[in-house]
Nucleic acid binder design. Sequence first.
DNA 1: CGTTACCCCTGGAGGC
DNA 2: TGCCTCCAGGGGTAAC
Length: 275
Amino acid sequence: MPELPEVEVSRRGLLPILPGQCIVDAVFRAPKLRHEIPSQLSSRLTGLRIDAIQRRGKYLLFDCESRHSGGWLLLHLGMSGSLRLVAPGTAPQKHDHVDLVFTATTLRFRDPRRFGTLLWHEGQAIENHPLIAALGIEPLTDAFSGDWLYEQTRRRSTPIKPLLMDSHLVVGIGNIYAAESLFAAGISPLRAANRIGRERYRALVPAIRTVLETSIAAGGSSVRDYVHSDGGAGCFQLSCAVYDRAGQPCPTCGQPVRAIRQSGRSTFYCPRCQH
DNA sequence: CGTTACCCCTGGAGGC
DNA sequence: TGCCTCCAGGGGTAAC
């Protein structure tokens, strides 16, 4: 479910609440999410203060006194994860796998499919964690430009859509926003990345940025104690132009939206508007 | 090195 | 009502 905007909105929802608070207890009700949860993690976390909450790609990074013999808690929401803040003592429901208990509130992680990731990284240098070190560029930075993406794709013959979703190249673009960005830029998801010209990448990159920022803005206006809505419709955008709209008219030309499969994922696009 | 297939897991939707 | 199949917003890993 969560792509970059959802993770960023979750982060912003936690920022006014958690930094400065100490972890009173950590409760794990599932033996593993994507990875095993070490048996001593609860005692390691207990007593540590949250100094900051950062985001890298779709990972939330909780700075737990990393500069003072603490470390980092890495959280990835996976496909079905969501966070909420509940009153201490609130009974967990099914799939509520993790609680970080603070004095006045509890951060609760729910993840039915358990594709989420929870990892502890001892020490200060989170950028050295192998999963973080392998991540590509942040799409909302100035360094992510049409010229940069053009240069990066010269030897990539794979279709542009799965490439946009490759977090080793650029982080945070999931299945929904890849489809929406390509529609906005008029580029076919099937087109080989190295057969797209510089000018078209100069259109695609701002389209990606606009789609992501619009979604963050839309999500940021909701929620307080419910950090992230897990509504099945997806999209913080009020409506998607093409995603999950197979057979429905393209908002630009009226041609039916087409659904295909790429790399095991569904892709939606307008065959008339996107080339 | 680049690309693809598979796998982790549960639940909801739709066909019969 | 039940059973079956397919699908779902991610991504790491292994194999070609």
